[in-house]
Simulated assay, not measured.
Amino acid sequence: MADERDRIGVAYDVKPHMYDPATNPELFDGVPARRVLAFLIDLVILAIPLILVWLFFFAIGIVTLGFGFGLFSLMPVITLIWAAYYYGTTLGGPQSATIGMRALDIQMRTWYGAPSYFVLAVVHAGLFWLTTSLLTPLILLVCFFNTRGRLLHDVLIGTVVINNPDRARPPRPVGPEPGIV
C-alpha cells in the first residue's frame, strides 16, 4: 500500500516548531517590549536618509526656481527601495536582525529554526506595513494572545522573533564553582 506522499507525487517533510516557550522561556522573555524599541530605532535609521533626500530635492527646487520640485514625486519609490534594501540586508543578513534588533539582542528565525534571508525579510517588512495600515495598529495586540509573542505577519509567513543566544543563555551562578575549595 502506497503512502500519501506517493499518491500525490510530492514528497515533503513537515518540520516541527523549533522554539517552544514552555521548554525555553528565556528565548521569549521580554521580546515584545524590546521589539517595539527596536522598531523605533529602525524607524529613525530609515528616516534620516529620506529626510536628507527630501532636503536635497527641496534645495534643487529652490535653485531651479520651482522646476526641481517635481523630484518629490520620486519620494514614494525611493522610500520603498530604501526600506526593502534596509530590511533585506539587515534582517536577511547573517545575524537575522535589523540594527535596532541587534541593539536590543533579538533576532528573527523561521519557525523551524533557520536564519532569515533577503526575500523573507522584505516580505516580512512589507506584510508588517500592510497589516498595520489595513487593519490599524491594534492588530499588533495579537502578540499578547499567543505563547510565542508572534504578530500577525509573523504567523502568516512562519517566522518568530526570539532573544539572541547571548541574551537567552541562562545566567551563571556567582561565587566559586561547586566542588572547588
Rank of each mutant, 00 (worst) to 15 (best):
L120A: 13
D20R: 01
D105Q: 14
V181L: 12
G66W: 03
P170N: 05
N164L: 00
P170E: 11
P49W: 10
S96N: 06
P94K: 14
V123P: 02
E177C: 00
Y112S: 14
F118A: 02
T110P: 00
Y112Q: 13
F144N: 03
A114T: 08
W54D: 05
P165Q: 11
H17V: 06
T110N: 05
A22G: 02
V77P: 01
V174L: 14
P115N: 06
V155R: 04
L104K: 02
F72E: 03
P49D: 07
V63L: 15
V53M: 05
G179K: 00
A125P: 00
L134T: 14
I81F: 13
V36E: 05
R7M: 14
I48V: 15
L55R: 07
A121R: 05
F28E: 08
T132C: 08
P25I: 08
V161I: 15
G149V: 10
R34A: 08
P21Y: 12
A2K: 10
P137G: 15
I81K: 04
L127E: 09
Y19Q: 04
T98Q: 08
V63T: 12
G158W: 12
P171C: 09
D166R: 11
I45F: 06
G93M: 12
T64S: 15
M101H: 15
A38N: 05
V14S: 11
I81N: 05
P165R: 09
M1I: 13
T90I: 07
A168E: 04
T89I: 09
G30C: 10
R102E: 14
L120G: 15
G158Q: 10
V31K: 05
V44D: 04
V10K: 04
T64N: 03
I162T: 11
L134I: 15
R150F: 07
P76Y: 12
P32T: 11
A2E: 13
G179F: 00
M18W: 02
N163D: 01
T136H: 10
A168I: 05
G66V: 12
G113N: 07
D29Q: 12
I62D: 13
I157A: 00
G92P: 00
Q95C: 01
T147V: 11
G179Q: 02
N164T: 07
I180V: 15
D29Y: 06
I60Y: 09
P137R: 08
R150K: 15
I81R: 02
L40R: 03
G93L: 12
T98V: 11
N24V: 04
H124A: 04
Y12D: 07
N24A: 14
G175L: 00
T159A: 08
W54F: 14
P94L: 07
F57D: 11
L55I: 14
V142T: 15
G9L: 13
A47M: 14
I8R: 07
F56Q: 02
A2S: 10
F118C: 01
I8C: 06
T23L: 12
P76N: 06
S73H: 08
A97P: 11
F58H: 10
A22H: 03
